[in-house]
């Protein structure tokens, strides 16, 4: 949710502000996509431990929102650029404030992107193992991959039990894929048409 709202807001600004600064900022987001999180993970862990956020769902959500922000800005930016400006112009001429223009005009027009971003990032987060392993391991808050991992550690070589756990983690994604495959595939392909 956070990613959709803030990401679209950020991208809209970037694409429309039309200044040199926005180009630089856009590059910043692109670098954010390319740069792996491994180097930042240790300071993040230290900082979150300090704030008491390690092992909590809140901390994990904050972390994920930040982690996937550049990706969502990137998705939105390519779509915002393709939007006709006339709608915004009309809204502004009619006296709508900046905020109203965004909420009433721009945000609804980005509807196809909301779907793609939510589906793509939702899926990546669901399957994510590295971040929860570091920030949630050993706590009461567990995600499915962590559960499977712990389960396999406990019942090593008992393949029937392991397959039960694997099945539980895969079936929801399968159902989701059948339901949303169009949006998913379009979402991943979306980066190209930009």
């Amino acid at each position: 949710m956070g990613v959709v709202t803030l990401g679209s807001l950020g991208a809209w600004t970037l694409a429309r502000s039309g200044s040199r600064l926005s180009t630089g900022l856009y590059m910043l987001f692109v670098i954010g996509i390319i740069m792996p999180l491994e180097l930042g993970i240790i300071p993040l862990y230290a900082a979150m431990r300090h704030l008491g956020l390690v092992g909590t769902a809140h901390g994990m959500i904050l972390l994920n929102v930040g982690h996937y922000m550049p990706l969502s800005v990137f998705f939105y930016a390519s779509f915002v650029r393709a939007l006709p400006k006339e709608y915004e112009e009309a809204a502004r001429v009619d006296g709508a404030s900046l905020f109203r223009t965004f909420v009433r005009v721009v945000f609804p027009m980005l509807r196809p992107v909301h779907g793609s971003v939510a589906v793509v990032i939702g899926l990546i987060t669901w399957n994510e193992f590295f971040l929860p392993l570091i920030f949630l391991a050993g706590s009461d808050t567990q995600t499915l991959p962590l559960g499977v991992y712990a389960f396999v550690g406990e019942f090593s070589a008992q393949w029937t039990l392991i397959f039960a756990a694997v099945t539980i983690s895969i079936v929801p994604v399968l159902a989701f894929f059948l339901f949303a495959q169009r949006q998913l595939i379009h979402g991943f392909a979306g980066g190209i048409r930009g």
Partner: peptide, 24 residues
Amino acid sequence: PLRVPWIVAFPSLAFTIAIHFLPV
């Protein structure tokens, strides 16, 4: 008049900097 002040991008920027750039 369509220019959006860059401050509107601040939340997304703040998240990106806090999670990506500062820790790095």
